[in-house]
């Protein structure tokens, strides 16, 4: 599914990577432990997290993730946003908690399973 479709449906606030919204979302991953995300996320995943430190950009970049959603209104640290803009990593803000965000995205990209 197209990243922009998810962004619009869930009213995600786009902080960076706007020109990559045409990219495909293949799945998702939820986690705040960076080693867990490094080990278990997959290319094209949309990553849902509360971490705002700039290393989330490095993880998303190294793992070729579709983007990062910061939940519960968490704001990216200033250097995180700078790095996300510099590396053109899609970074979003949302007010929903992680459980609800994951459920909604799952329903959108896996409708027959949900």
């Amino acid at each position: 599914m197209n990243l922009e479709t998810i962004v619009q449906a869930l009213q995600l606030r786009v902080k960076s990577g706007r020109d990559r919204l045409g990219g495909e979302v293949r799945g998702g991953y939820v986690g705040d432990l960076l080693s867990d995300v490094m080990a278990n996320s997959r290319e094209g995943d949309l990553w849902i997290t509360r971490q705002i430190h700039q290393n989330i950009v490095a993880v998303a970049s190294l793992k070729d993730l579709a983007g990062i959603i910061l939940v519960l209104g968490a704001e990216p640290a200033a250097d995180t946003l700078e790095k996300a803009i510099r590396e053109n990593i899609p970074l979003f803000m949302a007010d929903l908690p992680a459980f609800e965000m994951a459920g909604r995205i799952y329903q959108m990209i896996c409708p027959r399973k949900a």
Partner: peptide, 16 residues
């Protein structure tokens, strides 16, 4: 606090 130090790093290195 930064999301590291979960005791997974060396395991990840070995597993990959």
């Amino acid at each position: 606090e930064m999301g590291f130090g979960a005791g997974m790093g060396l395991n990840n290195i070995r597993n990959f």
